Amino acid sequence: MKRRIFDIIQIGQKGDFASRAFDLGIVIVILVNIATMILQTFDELANYQNVFVVVETVTIVLFIAEYILRLWTAEYLYPTSHRAKAVLRFMISFDGIIELFTILPFFFMSGFVAFRLLRVVRIFHLFRINSYTDSFHVIKSVLYEKRNQLVSSIFIIVVLMFASSLFMYSAEHSAQPQAFKNAFSGLWWSMSTLLTVGYGDIYPITAIGRIMAIFIAFLGVGVVAIPTGIISAGFVEQYRKEQDSTNNDLQRIHTIIIDIDSQWLGHTVAEIEQQYPVNILLRQKGKYAIKADSNDVVSLEDVLTVYQYEEPHIQKKSQS
């Protein structure tokens, strides 16, 4: 039963109705919870606050139940770890943290401002909707594979932001001490300039400041494009890997008809697989195709479905 519960609460396969229904139910609960949080901010709906509280409480209870089930079945998610370590690994994983942030804000809806701000964190459990799709896993794999390049590009952006902020503070502080009263003011300007946001609330007025701003603005256009290019290249590489994998599998599957000249005629499946770099998957005689057994003897006019590890030198009548 525990194993079955684990299978149900994981991402469902197409043939598993219970698991797919659970996924759909969780998505609906997430959307209802987010919609309730948004509707609670409308003054026009103040008369329905009690209804919103009830709906929110029900959805949170469902989230808590799911979180407990995931902790209970964590040993199946991490089979190489003992139970306590598996539970801890899930709690500090991305999905575990998101689920915890889904629950915690409900218990801190009043009190200090920092606690009330936790309610906004609940929006992050929308990521869990994406976790039920293959596209989200592709994004995660691309970001993970390109993590070193992304960190390097972000480091370059941060260094340029600090350098340009200090330059601009030095050039503009004397002319407009209220706008550039410290290095942080320069950092705010450099962030909005390098990231091409351009709020316009702080801007240089001196000649040297404007000259530097021109170079920094041009530099920002190129710098911001670096992580974008890295991620785009990662998606292209991932797409090519998937295509190559699919094409290679299709190219390695052969249908071979055994004739009188075949080198395989009269040999068993086991002997052929030992001598040639192939794996015989199916053996068809007439209308019927069966799984190839290692003791089967290949006879005349047999039709074999073969997985080829590399290009072997085989004599065959036809191939598709």
Rank of each mutant, 00 (worst) to 15 (best):
39 L>E: 11
247 N>S: 15
320 S>C: 12
18 A>L: 12
278 V>D: 02
91 M>K: 05
125 H>L: 13
239 Y>Q: 13
68 I>E: 01
269 V>T: 05
286 G>A: 07
74 A>F: 03
216 I>N: 05
20 R>T: 05
41 T>W: 07
79 P>D: 12
282 L>Q: 06
252 R>Y: 02
246 T>I: 14
219 L>A: 08
255 T>H: 08
252 R>L: 02
65 A>K: 07
16 D>C: 00
194 L>G: 01
5 I>H: 03
28 I>Q: 06
281 L>G: 06
7 D>K: 09
306 V>H: 02
168 M>Q: 09
150 L>C: 01
87 V>F: 08
182 N>R: 04
270 A>Y: 03
167 F>H: 14
33 N>F: 12
134 D>C: 09
201 D>H: 10
200 G>H: 09
311 E>F: 08
281 L>N: 07
66 E>N: 14
47 N>V: 14
90 F>V: 10
301 E>W: 00
68 I>Y: 08
281 L>C: 14
125 H>F: 13
233 A>N: 14
103 I>S: 09
144 Y>W: 10
97 I>H: 13
90 F>A: 06
288 Y>D: 04
22 F>A: 15
59 T>F: 08
173 H>P: 05
161 M>F: 06
247 N>R: 15
241 K>S: 14
218 F>Q: 07
63 F>D: 01
74 A>Y: 02
308 Q>P: 01
7 D>N: 14
28 I>G: 08
124 F>H: 04
60 I>N: 10
250 L>V: 15
46 A>V: 15
140 K>E: 05
153 S>I: 01
252 R>N: 06
102 T>G: 14
10 Q>H: 14
287 K>M: 08
52 F>A: 09
198 G>T: 14
205 I>S: 10
297 V>A: 04
194 L>M: 04
96 G>N: 11
271 E>H: 00
319 Q>W: 13
273 E>A: 01
145 E>R: 13
133 T>M: 07
54 V>W: 09
73 T>D: 00
37 M>N: 06
231 I>T: 02
184 F>D: 08
17 F>C: 14
312 P>W: 02
212 M>S: 11
200 G>P: 07
34 I>F: 12
160 L>F: 15
40 Q>V: 13
220 G>I: 02
71 L>M: 10
154 I>Y: 04
61 V>R: 03
63 F>A: 05
179 A>S: 08
24 L>H: 03
221 V>E: 13
1 M>K: 09
75 E>M: 07
262 S>L: 00
91 M>R: 05
175 A>K: 06
86 A>N: 03
117 L>C: 07
51 V>T: 15
90 F>L: 09
171 A>V: 13
278 V>K: 01
201 D>Y: 10
121 V>C: 12
270 A>T: 04
9 I>Y: 06
225 A>R: 15
53 V>R: 05
30 I>G: 04
69 L>V: 12
